[in-house]
Amino acid sequence: MVGQIRDLIAEKGLTVGDGLPTERDLCTQFNASRNTVREAMRILKAYGLVEVRPKIGATIADNRLARAFDLFSFNTMEVSRKTFSDVQAFRDLLEVGSAEQIMDRITDRDIADLYALNGKLAEGADIHVASEVDYDFHYRLISILGNDAILDVYKVMKPVILRIMQKGKTRRSYKTETFAEHQGVIDALAARDRLAFQYRLRAHLMIGFKNFSDEMEGAA
């Protein structure tokens, strides 16, 4: 759905300030449910591509750089539930949204590297080391795309991604639960099963939502 809306923006030549079709029109045009359209708009909003305002609707925006500095500030010591949701939606756009390209490009070497990285989670390292391994796993996954700009964005995101991972690992077993979730993602890749890959990766990204508070703590 996100890809379809982005294609629509490109096809119509929409620029900053231009309005998107209404939610109802998007449902009709793409034969999608209202919940599907709303989730796609939420992701695009988190990415900084659209703004949604009462009585005006969705318009094209270009505040991606400001959102990056806001979300991924090195001074932000804790992340709220809202920030968690925004960051993981951004990662969903990068990782899950690139499923087609990943499936087209992936090699046996890529799969072997991902299995090897995931194996390190079961080696008994502490939470900080395990979070670095977790980050490296996802970085290696998107490196399959061969897109340096995407990798640069992911590097900018690293401080807050690590904080999300570290917090999750205080509530869940990375040696068993995170390991098993990663393993399922790799198994789907090895089987070239795009739908299973998207389902398992999306579930993995959002599973820690309940671990985060409603308020920002220690904000910069």
Rank of each mutant, 00 (worst) to 15 (best):
V2E: 11
G3H: 11
D7N: 13
A10F: 04
A10R: 15
A10C: 00
G13R: 09
V16F: 10
V16Y: 15
L26S: 11
Q29D: 05
F30T: 01
F30C: 04
N35F: 04
A40R: 06
R42S: 14
I43R: 10
L44V: 06
L44I: 02
Y47F: 11
L49S: 13
V50I: 14
R53F: 10
P54W: 06
I56R: 14
A58C: 01
I60C: 04
I60L: 08
A61I: 02
L65W: 08
A68E: 09
M77D: 12
M77C: 08
E78Y: 07
T83D: 08
Q88S: 07
L94M: 07
G97Q: 06
G97S: 03
G97P: 12
E100L: 03
I106G: 02
T107K: 13
D108W: 06
D108Q: 13
R109L: 07
D110K: 09
D110N: 14
D113Y: 02
L114K: 00
Y115K: 09
N118L: 08
K120I: 00
K120G: 05
G124T: 05
A125S: 12
I127N: 14
Y135F: 15
F137A: 05
F137R: 02
I144V: 12
D148A: 06
D148H: 05
L151N: 08
V153A: 04
Y154S: 11
K155R: 15
M157W: 07
P159N: 02
I164Q: 10
K167Y: 00
K167V: 04
G168L: 02
R171D: 05
R171E: 11
R172V: 00
Y174K: 02
K175I: 01
T176D: 07
T178C: 06
T178H: 07
F179P: 13
H182S: 03
G184R: 15
I186G: 02
I186T: 04
A188M: 01
R192H: 09
D193H: 01
Y199C: 07
Y199N: 13
L201Y: 12
R202A: 15
L205N: 14
M206N: 15
F209D: 15
F209T: 14
F212K: 05
E215P: 11
G218C: 06
G218L: 04
A219Q: 07
A220H: 11
